[in-house]
């Protein structure tokens, strides 16, 4: 199937952000997604608004009844006895869908990267389930991660449309609240 001129133009408009934005190349849509603050993606922007880090060590583990609330998306119940990490990071994110179609977004697309290696970390919890972000709308997420007690951290976003990974910023080193 040949691409129409309009589709090609649209593709060129988007590929400045994401060369591999296959979805957008096939759509008859306005050429440029709108954006909010933050990192450009294939569908708009994502931004790290805020983060906090805390030690859960004092609360020990599930058997001791230690839970952590406050600024977190979920009740964090790591098991120190089990050997799980007992520091946590909570991130506050903004996602803007600048296209004219809903975009599927899952909090699992965000991962924490541990500095000094190849290790990234899956989420512990989020205040939103996976689902579509409506066209032209902006949504916020809070996502929690267990993290190692020391070392630098950063946050990244895997754009499932462009298949690019975006660096969203450092989460500081060793600071706790």
């Amino acid at each position: 199937m040949e691409l129409s001129r309009r589709r090609v133009l649209w593709g060129l408009g988007a590929t400045g952000v994401a060369a591999g934005a296959g979805l957008l190349l096939t759509r008859d849509e306005p050429p440029t997604p709108s954006r909010a603050g933050g990192e450009w993606t294939s569908f708009g922007t994502v931004a790290l608004l805020d983060w906090s880090r805390r030690s859960l060590a004092a609360s020990h583990d599930h058997a001791a009844g230690g839970h952590v609330h406050g600024g977190a998306a979920t009740v964090l119940v790591p098991s120190a006895v089990h050997g799980a990490w007992t520091d946590a990071v909570s991130v506050h994110l903004q996602v803007h869908n600048g296209t004219h179609e809903p975009v599927e977004l899952s909090p699992g697309q965000f991962r924490v990267r541990v500095a000094g290696g190849d290790v990234t970390v899956s989420l512990y919890g989020a205040d939103r389930a996976a689902g579509p972000i409506a066209a032209g709308s902006t949504a916020t997420f809070r996502i929690d991660y267990l993290v190692p007690p020391a070392g630098g951290l950063s946050l990244e976003f895997a754009d499932a449309i462009s298949m690019r990974t975006h660096q969203l910023g450092r989460l500081g080193e060793g600071s706790t609240t």
Partner: peptide, 14 residues
């Protein structure tokens, strides 16, 4: 559990 990480990191123990 809210996530696989929550399940994996907090198995019952005695």
């Amino acid at each position: 559990f809210p996530s696989q990480a929550a399940f994996a990191s907090n198995q019952p123990h005695e």
